[in-house]
Simulated scan of single mutants.
Amino acid sequence: MPLPEVCVVYLLRRGPNGLEVLLGDKRTGLGEGKVVGIGGKLDSGETPREAAVREVAEEIGVRVEASDLHEAGAIDYHFPTKPEWSQRSTVFVCRRWRGEPVETAEITPHWYTLDAVPYPRMWDDASRWLPGVLRGGTVDARFTFGADLATVVLGAH
């Protein structure tokens, strides 16, 4: 049975101290309290790219064009003790958009230089693949989380 599909977008800009990525403090739902990329579930009939455009607008009030989204790969997440959390995430990087990120009920956005990304506050898998993606690489990975629903117990990438 295929995993439910989600998408995540990492906006990148050149800041005064080098390349910066936009991440958000998750305020509700799965991942509440963690620092996450911008994204969410695909609606019925929606492609990952279409969902990414919609989710960025809904979560931080920024408009991205589908053609400006660079697909950087996909990750399968497995939660054997809570299978409803299992999902497949398509990862996008975007360097062009319109508008300024704003706080919403779901996300409080913050810019981080690449050497200051708060990996300890993110999902356990992020430090294993996100640095490479933010520097222009790709990801094709599978991660299985333990009974604590927080720690990666098996990862392949």
Rank of each mutant, 00 (worst) to 15 (best):
M1I: 10
P2M: 11
V8T: 12
V8L: 11
V8Y: 04
R13H: 05
G15W: 08
N17G: 08
N17L: 14
L23I: 03
K26F: 01
R27Q: 15
G29W: 02
G31H: 10
G31A: 09
E32T: 12
G37F: 04
G39Q: 01
G40C: 06
G40W: 02
K41L: 09
D43W: 06
S44Y: 08
T47I: 11
T47E: 10
P48Q: 08
A52L: 11
E58H: 04
V62T: 07
V62Q: 02
D68S: 14
D68Q: 13
E71N: 13
E71K: 11
A72L: 08
G73F: 08
A74C: 14
I75Y: 00
D76E: 14
Y77I: 07
Y77T: 06
Y77H: 12
F79P: 01
K82L: 12
P83F: 06
E84L: 04
E84W: 04
W85K: 03
W85Y: 10
T90S: 09
F92H: 05
V93N: 00
R96D: 14
W97Q: 00
W97E: 00
P101Y: 02
T104R: 08
L114R: 06
Y119H: 11
P120S: 14
W123H: 11
D124I: 14
D125M: 03
D125Q: 07
D125I: 07
S127P: 00
W129Y: 15
W129E: 06
L130Q: 05
G132R: 03
G132A: 10
V133Q: 03
V133P: 01
L134C: 07
R135Y: 02
G136Q: 09
G137Q: 08
D140L: 05
D140K: 13
F143A: 10
T144Q: 11
G146Y: 09
G146L: 11
G146F: 04
G146T: 05
A147H: 12
A147Y: 04
A150N: 15
A150S: 15
T151S: 15
V152H: 09
V153P: 13
G155E: 09
H157G: 15
